[in-house]
Amino acid sequence: MNNRPTWQERPTLFGLTLKGFTLTVIVLVMIYPIYVVILTSLSTASAVTAAGGLVTLPTDLSLDAYRELFGGGVVTRAVLVSTGVTLVGTTVSLGLTILAAYGLSRTNSLFHRPLLFLFLLTFLFTPGMIPTYLMVRELGLIDSYWSLILPSAISAFNLVVMRAFFMNIPGEVIDSARIDGAGDFRILGRIVLPMSKGVTAVIGLFYAVGYWNAFFNAVLYINDNSKWPLQLILRQYVQQGMDLVPNTRTYDSAAGALPPNLAIKMAIIVVALIPVLIIYPFVQKHFTKGVIIGAVKG
């Protein structure tokens, strides 16, 4: 592990200890809440009662909470809604973003400048909540799952990232394909996309996470609570149902017995967390400066 350049002085024991300690604290602050929540969700009701709330040390483990959740109730439904919206939404968003990013990647093409300008201008001004809401209602999308997808389907930021990446592909590659008579759809599918797996994965993750986490658009556009995505369930049962009521008598009730379904609440949190935890490691390796920074600088 000796990566220290020769000119650099040896670290002092004190400095090294301080650094190690700081980093350990940072990592623990990030991980510990998640550990406690996962552990509690996997504990039996009696273990939760014995701990007086959240479980910090594994004692009595069971999958009861998850069996309950996926027994076909409201959470099962919400998970299906969120999964569906995420899959369809990511497909639509990623597909249209790739197409448009490639369509705008040739600087001398027809209408290139005005079209690009229309996308870039969206950075400067957001239409605002009310007119957007009225537009969605005008289109009859209230209580439709499409209201969770279409208004936010195109992120100009993601489009610009993708376009910047496509523009870095050597022009000779594309020009020679054109000379061979390949159309642009063919070039995109056969040449450009296979060279852009990393950026596609990252942008896909951004979109997918956005859809999975989307909360407020459902508050606005979905009145029918049988169509609620998971984040709204999380808000309703976990966040609001517990101790965020303003005039609460939290202390009394908490000192007596916490709601017996604490494990279930924690399981809902875990279910909202899991997809991110699973996909994240696969995409993380692409978070190198190339993909993101090129983007930030435009």
């Binding site: 448009a100 369509g103 229309l118 195109i154």
Partner: peptide, 15 residues
């Protein structure tokens, strides 16, 4: 290239 850009452009115009 124009055809590729149109769907995204449509969404941006509408929303």
């Amino acid at each position: 290239l124009l055809v590729m850009t149109l769907p995204a452009l449509g969404l941006v115009l509408v929303f």
